[in-house]
Write a protein that binds this DNA or RNA. Sequence first.
DNA 1: TGCGGCAGCGCAAACGGTTGTGCCACTGGT
DNA 2: ACCAGTGGCACAACCGTTTGCGCTGCCGCA
Lengths: 342, 342
Amino acid sequence: MSSGAGRGVGLKELSAHLGLSPTTVSRVLNNAGGAFRIAPETQRRVKQAAAQLKYEPNAFARGLRKRRSFTIGVMVPEISEGYAATVLGGIEDALLQEEFFYFVVSHRHRNDLLQAYPRLLLSRSVEGIIAVDTPVHEDLPVPVVAVSGHSRKNHVVRIELDHLTAARLALMHLRDLGHRHIAFIKGQTFSSDTRVRWDAIRRVCSTLGVRIDPNLVVQLEGTAPGSEPGHRAAKELLARGARFTAIFAFNDASAIGAIAALHEAGLHVPRDVSVVGFDDIAAAATVHPSLTTVRQPLREMGQTAASNLLQLIRSGKREPAQASVQISPSFVRRHSTAKVAP
Amino acid sequence: MSSGAGRGVGLKELSAHLGLSPTTVSRVLNNAGGAFRIAPETQRRVKQAAAQLKYEPNAFARGLRKRRSFTIGVMVPEISEGYAATVLGGIEDALLQEEFFYFVVSHRHRNDLLQAYPRLLLSRSVEGIIAVDTPVHEDLPVPVVAVSGHSRKNHVVRIELDHLTAARLALMHLRDLGHRHIAFIKGQTFSSDTRVRWDAIRRVCSTLGVRIDPNLVVQLEGTAPGSEPGHRAAKELLARGARFTAIFAFNDASAIGAIAALHEAGLHVPRDVSVVGFDDIAAAATVHPSLTTVRQPLREMGQTAASNLLQLIRSGKREPAQASVQISPSFVRRHSTAKVAP
DNA sequence: TGCGGCAGCGCAAACGGTTGTGCCACTGGT
DNA sequence: ACCAGTGGCACAACCGTTTGCGCTGCCGCA
């Protein structure tokens, strides 16, 4: 009854208990002690009492007054998918040591949610937003960092893979193994990485002198998750009858589907056809044969996104120092690629 | 300049724009209109202006006054792992239609974080907590729902798989295929499901008349993620030299590792040995041979957890109506099991 | 004409902290 | 003995919404 009906002790109770004003207690606990000349002995008493009574400042009141929430919002297509979850892991790494929390929302490509969520997040007073593989339409009053979202907005920092290096890693590997007839599985049109990754492949191919046969290029179709679209794409490739000794797939899931299709056609991987994936998802190491792939350091991309956002928040400026941060892919050689048969 | 330095319009600006008091506007927007006799025409004007000026109430001020946050906290071991991410997807399904947001924290089995996070979440005024595969030590002043957390706390609602049915599905399948010598891979001691799942297996075995040979029981060891612990466990099993025709693994990851070990030993799956996994992770469908497994409906478990928590929050009582909610597993038959050779 | 009643709205005090400014007492210099 | 300077703390306004209560008219009834 004495300490009120609310949960925990408030600044009122604490200061009454100490015989001080809320002002003084607040100043001590916020370390305004230096600037505001509170007696060292008083500071000691205050801190001790706060610890003893387990005082926790009310986040609402503090946020209201200071106009800070120490919270950011993260928009992802779907949290349950490995891509987003891994990036979130990296985001969390960077945030929690700075005492920041985050809200996550999955828009599932629904347009109404894509419109509504930024506003809802803002009404929750987030201090910044990270958009993971998500387009940002509106101009927002807080800093925004995009991971793999190729937004044209010029005040949005983009964290993106160095696709040129990625393409080079895969294609040089295949070239060094002797492959000359390489087939490509492009991503679905709605996927934000499709275009930029394909552009990179074309540029690297022309640099390396690798010819791209239009007859050896297929595209993933449909929104089905997993390996099914890749399976279909590879079947179409086989149906065309053109000769090829290697496939560079858009991602690991489609590479796995392609391998299944090759097996069904009586072809052996990697003896008859080598396959290179992209992403290095968990399954890449466990499928048979294990997948040679270009690894996207998703966790690191999340970390980079979060620390960049925190920097923008601290600086108080919405305008970033640099509009884009490139992340380097690495190459994971496993057992789905081999020297081309003589 | 006119609308203030703050972000977005506030109740002040909106009411000034309308020539009304903040009181009236607030009442209309909160639908206290019926009780508080606001003219229908006025209500219309208010709502229209609010929509037009994109007014969003400040969550801090509202939370401060109403002592509600419309936010819950979710504790998981590690957000980037598929298990947690899938459960989170279900949680989100149930929360967002109720206008609730959630904070996620990953404790990574670190004891200091396990202690600190509940307090931190509370200081953010969460109205409830969902603990996913996470022990809850303290007695918290908000409702708590545990997913696969074998907590003894009696005021915590547990959402748990019906392990008895799960064991029955797998063991009846193996029995019907003719298997009599079944090996078991138990989970790591720190995993919360290990004990309860093993208990279920023992009970079902005795019901079905299946003998458990202690020499055919091994245990996962180490915190390494992925299939490595299962690989080691299966090697030990083989080293013991006892005859078996099937393995029931603790989870899909260890089943995949076990299959690799069997292959290395020159055994064919499923011709020589059948393998049943648990969970139905994404990789289960893509490994070779694809994995017969007991599917845990993780997303549904997340949904159930969230809607139960919301109910507790609404009721204002911390004490649940029922201490435990059982979720039914299903059985996914793929290609890692076959009839025992005659 | 007087008055009760109600429809329609506003006043001001919360909620729990932070912060610009002011007040008091003491100290030391001259 | 007087005043300036400073150390140590408190006053009160403020952040943006909600909410108990009260105020103003106008209408109807006697």
